[in-house]
């Protein structure tokens, strides 16, 4: 259970590279600065992909949790 209330949730379960990254970029582009995007993923590659993407783009990775094979990222869009 996330400690953050997302403004939008993107569920990429079952999808693999490149689609989680593509869909996440599309989603966050439409969001306001400072808003929170929750991304659910099952592609293990997203663990590093999304973390490094946040650093590159200035977004804040608020939380990353794992439950079984499901990864849940909580990202605050850069202001």
């Amino acid at each position: 259970m996330s400690n953050w209330q997302p403004d939008q949730t993107l569920d990429t379960s079952g999808k693999c590279c490149p689609m989680p990254m593509v869909e996440m970029n599309q989603a966050i582009r439409k969001m306001d600065p400072g808003s929170i995007l929750e991304v659910i993923a099952t592609d293990p590659g997203t663990r590093d992909d999304i973390s490094s993407w946040c650093q590159r783009k200035g977004h804040e990775l608020l939380e990353l949790s794992e439950e079984g094979k499901t990864l849940r990222f909580t990202v605050r869009k850069a202001s």
Binding site: C17, P18, V22, N25, R56, K57
Partner: peptide
């Protein structure tokens, strides 16, 4: 094509 899609998605 997948690599291109990844990078294009970031701009």
């Amino acid at each position: 094509l997948a690599f291109a899609y990844l990078q294009a998605a970031e701009g």
